[in-house]
Design a protein around this nucleic acid. Structure first.
Length: 736
DNA sequence: GCTTCCCCAA
């Protein structure tokens, strides 16, 4: 009987062990708050709510996801928390930007319990103290570490060194470091990067040499083996120079590293990769990684994917991605982001869908990328779906995600929804404000943009150079010349920002669009340094709007000089000549373009009916309902002619006969999309279309008329702004 | 290691 009881108890213990292990597996796979909540429920259901190891793990995972209130509640539910649980909670608060709370947990541990802090406790206490503004807190915690005898311990010591560097107390950092009896790769690294962050490059390099001497001494005498010190130190140095953009030093250190016989590892490659401004260099690093079998490391392949994407080598990026055997969540994100940044939004979205079938779940970074893709593409339906996904997780708390959501709604035409989200965001950073300002700019709502800007200033957020770009951009699209002028000068005199070429281009745009062509020209002539093509191109655009052929000729000559291979200049200039009815001249320019094998980007328009996107090109016959669409257009045209409409074709292709030219304009992709929208939706429904190029003058007129005839609101996003057509009027006030 | 905002032009 006794025997049976004992074995039953053993069996029970075994079962408990198994279940316990299962919970740890569950934790590992819980990537969202809702997963964790379910796991917690399971723990209670199985009667493990007092199992401190499980609760500690739960606290840790909750902290990782930023759910600190929840984590604290778990902590409070434990009758007798041990020092491990205290440590986990301190780490959580530290990680989630609450160093104050972390330190009060620490104080509670020391003052109100009989537990003894261990070295891990001090590691977290020190990093919490580093998060304070006041370095006196740091000194107090350092003092406590001395009292408890942990200040010279390897990890604590390294953290104290790091902390003093953070407060730029280089001397103190040095003292603590020198007193540490044992040093490892991490502590050396801390010392090196500390010097570097305090811009003491000389000291940093000396330290590296010292590390090398110790290394060689150690190897010779066999006293102790710091095998990785040298590798780690070199990696840290290379990484530092690389991220400072100092390619030369970074590469020469790498060479030195190879010559010194130090072992290279995958981190060496990763440290070197952002050097990358030259494709040849990336190829070299790629080849080297291949030879050394570093490509199997997710960190290496992810870095290479990223750098290839940044150099617009998207196929190479995809190759690396496809061939990397050990993908991480970051690998997927890097590839999706690569597609997004290269404008390959369809590929980004389909890879995202593929990812959802894989073992990886999207994280806030993935969501941010995919929202950016939706914004570029203008697919409101997908954007809304992603928004739903965001709501069901706790990704909304990520400032990146919520900012990207605002951008998505603004760029997909729902400026009101964007503003609603903006209003309820508890924490905004400068990018959030910039997004909202440029959103209003995009819709031509200049005054609203200026309101947001002054709200930003009032709430104490410092504007950045990008903020001024967004504001100036909004001014230019709303014709606010005086305001733009004032803001430009306040940027320089009040905020002390040196205007960049982009700022100058914005000002030229403001002046030029408003018809002040001579002032715009003077503006360019007074700008410091050589104006780049973008500035001239802006002025050329203004010449086109205001039909100033003489200035256009001068400007285009500048442009040919600066950038002879650009298609845009040829097209634009030829359009200017045809606007001037100087067809022979226009034909010459076009011929030049043709001779150089330069082609105009084809225009297309997207319309979503329900969840289905439909894409039209000019004169497109491929749509299943093409016949009905063309009939609809014919009918509409009849009604428009009755209302006195005359086609304006002066900005279209000119090297064809008048009648033929009219035909080509007549079937521009946006008209086909609008006609299809009229057929495929209920009367009264708003029609939203997205065009890759700017809408032409004639199509603009026609859309106004269609909105009146059919009593529909038509929202058009063109290459750089929104037009809301209603009752025969456009929100841009014909100013675009 | 991977993320949000940024002139013009087509």
């Amino acid at each position: 009987m006794l025997l049976r009881t004992v074995s039953a108890a053993t069996a029970e213990t075994n079962v408990a062990t198994v279940i316990n292990k299962n919970f740890f597996d569950l934790f590992k796979r819980s990537t969202s708050l809702s997963h964790l909540t379910q796991t917690h429920a399971q723990i209670i259901l199985h009667g493990f709510q007092y199992d401190i190891s499980l609760l500690t793990k739960l606290t840790q995972r909750l902290s990782d996801l930023g759910a600190m209130y929840y984590a604290r509640d778990i902590f409070l539910s434990v009758q007798k928390p041990d020092v491990f649980l205290f440590n986990v909670l301190m780490r959580g608060f530290s990680k989630n930007e609450s160093p104050h709370t972390s330190l009060s947990v620490f104080t509670h541990l020391r003052k109100s319990t009989d537990l003894k802090p261990n070295s891990t406790t001090y590691t977290y206490a020190i990093s919490a103290a580093s998060g304070f503004r006041d370095e006196r807190v740091a000194r107090v915690v350092h003092g406590q570490a001395v009292v408890d005898g942990f200040d010279s311990e390897l990890h604590v010591g390294s953290n104290i060194v790091k902390m003093y560097f953070k407060f730029s107390r280089v001397e103190d950092a040095r003292k603590v470091f020198d007193r540490m009896p044992e040093k490892d790769a991490v502590s050396w690294n801390t010392m090196l990067s500390g010097y570097r962050e305090n811009e003491m490059y000389e000291e940093s390099i000396q330290e590296l040499r010292l590390g090398m001497q110790i290394h060689s001494l150690a190897t010779k005498t066999g006293c102790y083996s710091h095998d990785f010190v040298l590798t780690v130190a070199y990696n840290a140095m290379i990484h530092g120079y690389t991220s400072n953009g100092d390619t030369e030093l970074s590469l020469s250190l790498f060479r030195e590293m190879v010559l010194s016989g130090a072992r290279l590892n995958s981190n060496t490659v990763v440290s070197l990769i952002p050097v990358s401004s030259h494709l040849m260099l990336v190829y070299a690093i790629h080849g080297f990684s291949l030879k050394s079998n570093f490509l199997s490391h997710a960190s290496v392949s992810t870095s290479l994917t990223t750098v290839y994407s940044k150099l617009n080598e998207i196929e190479s990026a995809r190759e690396i991605f496809d061939e990397s055997p050990d993908k991480s969540l970051a690998s997927w994100n890097a590839m999706i982001s690569g597609y997004t940044q290269n404008g390959l939004t369809d590929d980004a979205i389909s890879l995202f869908k593929e990812m959802q079938k894989s073992e990886f779940s999207p994280n806030p970074i993935t969501i941010t990328c995919i929202l950016s893709a939706c914004a570029q593409l203008g697919t409101l339906s997908l954007g809304k779906w992603v928004h739903g996904l965001v709501k069901s997780t706790d990704f909304e708390s990520s400032i990146y995600v919520s900012t990207a959501l605002i951008g998505m709604y603004a760029k997909c035409g729902s400026i009101a929804e964007a503003h609603r989200l903006f209003d309820v965001m508890p924490k905004k950073n400068e990018v959030t404000w910039n997004t909202m300002i440029s959103g209003y700019g995009l819709h031509g709502h200049g005054h609203e943009a200026l309101d947001i800007f002054s709200e930003m200033l009032n709430s104490g957020i410092a504007p950045t150079p990008v903020t001024f770009l967004c504001v100036l951009y909004a001014c230019s699209h709303a014709g606010l010349v005086k305001e733009g002028d004032e803001i430009f000068s306040s940027m320089i005199h009040q905020y002390g920002f040196e205007p960049s070429v982009k700022h100058y281009a914005c000002m030229v745009d403001i002046l030029g669009r408003a018809g002040h062509l001579q002032r715009a020209l003077q503006f360019i002539e007074t700008m410091p340094g050589d104006p780049d093509p973008s500035v001239w191109q802006t002025l050329l655009g203004a010449c086109r709007i205001h039909k100033d052929t003489n200035l256009a000729r001068t400007v285009s000559e500048k442009l040919f000089e600066l950038d002879p291979d650009n298609v845009g200049y040829h097209v634009l200039l030829s359009n200017i000549h045809s606007a001037d009815r100087n067809y022979p001249q226009a034909a010459t320019v076009r011929q030049t373009a043709k001779n150089r094998k330069l082609a105009k980007a084809p225009g297309y328009t997207l319309i979503e009916i329900g969840e289905t996107p439909h894409v039209f090109t000019s004169g497109d016959q491929s749509h299943p309902q093409a016949k009905a669409i063309y009939e609809k257009l014919e009918k509409l045209e009849g009604k428009m002619r009755e209302a006195g409409y005359q086609p304006e074709t002066e900005l279209a292709l000119h090297d064809v006969e008048e009648e033929e030219r009219e035909l080509m304009v007549k079937f521009h992709s946006e008209r086909l999309a609008i006609a299809f929208g009229l057929i495929a939706t209920e009367p009264g429904t708003e029609i939203r279309i997205i065009k890759n190029l700017r809408v032409c003058l004639d199509c603009h007129t026609v859309t106004k008329l269609i909105s009146k005839i059919t009593e529909r609101v038509i929202v058009v996003r063109d290459a750089n702004r929104f037009h809301h057509f209603k009752d025969g009027v456009c929100s841009c006030g014909d100013y675009w």
